[in-house]
């Protein structure tokens, strides 16, 4: 056997293995996705949106409480986390730049992005839930804000960096003060990128369960008071799925389906915004 034949055979072996592993990997993932869709669509009914939670076996039970709770918790986290994240990211890109302080903040945020979210839950329990004496929707929002911050900060930083410095210089040359340059020129230039960062950040925290387990806790009924324990889709999903009741498990699948579709939509939108920007 010549050297070339050996190399070709080796190549074919490795390429086959790689294709097989791609097929296995994708197979597993589409299996999960398929199950999610089949069970989710099967469990979807109108009562899910119109009814609150109910004891197992009760016919008219839905996820209204969890959907509204989820919206409130994630909504509050977004309202707080997004402006803070954008401002901090602005500092990194426009003021800090390559300074040691800015680099340290970047490094720490990068680590925070992958840090275990359950630990954030424990932290918020210690500083919010324990002093208040009870679980609350606010505590859940705070935990999610902490998780969202580094994501928004880093994408804003990256996206502002992509704005050509000639644009800034042109605005400076017209006599604009720096804050105006940032708000009216840099932000505008990086709009699509910042929006993508926000969408991805929201998508990321919307799927978080662990930090909500002991902050916003759960509630089987509709509650719109953020000072009280509050249901979220993720925690409801966990509780219902681990319960022995079939109708609750079904609701759990519906919650999983609704949440996953929401998160996938946000991700796809985010990618589209970036593509549109590149295409221009």
């Amino acid at each position: 056997m010549t050297h070339t034949t050996k190399r070709i055979i080796m190549n074919n072996i490795v390429m086959t293995l790689s294709t097989i592993s791609a097929v296995i990997g994708m197979g597993f993932l589409f299996w999960i996705l398929g199950i999610l869709v089949i069970n989710g669509v099967d469990a979807l009914t109108w009562t899910i949106f119109s009814q609150e939670g109910a004891p197992p076996g009760y016919e008219n039970s839905g996820l209204k409480h969890a959907l509204i709770g989820q919206l409130l918790i994630v909504g509050a986290a977004t309202v707080v986390g997004v402006p803070l994240g954008i401002l901090a990211g602005t500092y990194l890109s426009e003021y800090g730049q390559k300074a040691k302080l800015a680099e340290t903040i970047r490094d720490i945020s990068d680590i925070m992005m992958s840090a275990p979210s359950i630990v954030i839950g424990a932290f918020v329990y210690a500083v919010v839930v324990a002093p208040m004496g009870h679980f609350s929707g606010w505590a859940g929002s705070i935990a999610l804000t902490i998780i969202m911050l580094p994501i928004i900060l880093r994408t804003t930083d990256d996206m502002l960096n992509l704005v050509p410095s000639t644009l800034r210089e042109a605005a400076f040359a017209l006599g604009a003060p720096k804050y105006k340059v940032i708000i009216q020129v840099v932000y505008r230039g990086a709009k699509a990128g910042i929006l993508t960062g926000i969408l991805l950040g929201v998508a990321r925290v919307a799927g978080e369960t662990a930090p909500l387990l002991f902050t916003s806790f759960n509630d089987n009924f509709l509650n719109t008071d953020m000072n009280e324990p509050m249901a979220s889709l993720t925690v409801t999903m966990y509780n219902y799925a681990t319960s022995p009741y079939e109708d609750w498990q079904k609701l759990g699948w519906a919650a999983a389906f609704i949440l996953s579709m929401f998160i996938l939509t946000l991700n796809i939108l985010g990618k589209l915004f970036l593509l549109k920007k590149k295409g221009r």
Binding site: L29, I32, G207, E208, Y238, A256, I263
Partner: peptide
Amino acid sequence: LAAIPSVV
């Protein structure tokens, strides 16, 4: 798929 929540 990396974005699907781990609870799923």
